[in-house]
């Protein structure tokens, strides 16, 4: 078994009296594609916030690539390849789509401290940005301000920015939420074509999508891991059925 690229050990988080993460021991290996599911308010987004450092844990630790990163700030984890998208679009709405990606590329290439412009480098970064936009079918939108895009397209910009950062671990918080079901195809296509050594954890309410792609599913309920296993195991799990999946699932 390959060593995990991302791990948590006894991760706890309380918001006041509310426990949103309870003793979570999680691990993800390179190249894996896994899903995190659970009812609304289960603590899925909070788990991503804990992993990335946006929210500090009450106790427990986060291990990235064998190193304890619990005390590291968000940006240091990003630099080590831990990249996320947001459940609610967190974009520069007044910048163009390409400029959003270019900002990320600049930081990724360590240009963020560069105090002087460089037209030739700009052109190269622009090309790189459009490569990524091309993969997401966003090329025609590159020169448009984000706020002019329909919400579903904006969701794709979230992914474009994440890809610009060349992640080792990609945490996707409901990437298809808000995309009309007729257009989720683009997201699926992108997810299918991700680099083979990339580890992906996806939070998703669309069970068709989850059961089709995930190699393993973690079910989170009230901050605690209720079950963890292959799609078949989860689909057959009586507790999961009772608590979360209900009748509507045909996996």
């Amino acid at each position: 078994m390959t060593a995990a690229i991302l791990e948590t050990r006894a991760l706890h988080k309380n918001f006041g009296a509310l426990a949103v993460a309870q003793n979570i021991n999680f691990s993800l290996e390179p190249g894996r594609f896994e899903a995190l599911i659970g009812p609304n308010g289960a603590g899925k987004s909070t788990f991503i916030n804990l992993l990335t450092g946006l929210v500090p844990p009450t106790s427990g630790s986060v291990i990235l690539d064998g190193q304890d990163v619990t005390a590291l700030p968000i940006e240091a984890r990003v630099k080590r390849g831990l990249v996320r998208t947001f459940q609610i679009n967190t974009l520069f709405n007044n910048l163009t789509v390409a400029e959003n990606v270019i900002l990320a590329l600049d930081e990724h290439h360590g240009q963020g401290w560069r105090p002087l412009p460089s037209p030739s480098r700009r052109r190269r970064i622009r090309d790189e940005a459009y490569d990524i936009l091309g993969r997401l079918g966003l090329t025609p939108w590159g020169n448009r301000e984000v706020r002019e895009l329909p919400y579903g397209r904006q969701r794709l910009v979230e992914i474009a920015i994440a890809l610009a950062l060349r992640p080792k671990v990609l945490l996707l918080d409901e990437p298809a939420a808000g995309i009309p079901s007729t257009e989720t195809g683009t997201v699926i296509e992108v997810l299918e074509n991700l680099a083979s050594d990339l580890a992906v954890l996806i939070i998703e309410h669309d069970m068709d999508l989850v059961f089709r792609f995930a190699q393993r599913i973690t079910v989170l309920v009230q901050g605690a891991v209720l079950a963890r296993g292959t799609p078949d195991e989860i689909a057959d799990n009586e507790t999961v059925k009772a608590v979360y999946l209900g009748e509507g699932i045909h996996a």
Binding site: L54, I74, V78, F86, T90, E107, I161
Partner: peptide
């Protein structure tokens, strides 16, 4: 990047700033 921080700090952190 400074304008980026002004406009959306959380996003800037998430891209590694």
């Amino acid at each position: 990047s400074l304008v980026g921080i002004r406009e959306n700090r959380v996003r800037m952190q998430a891209i590694g700033t």
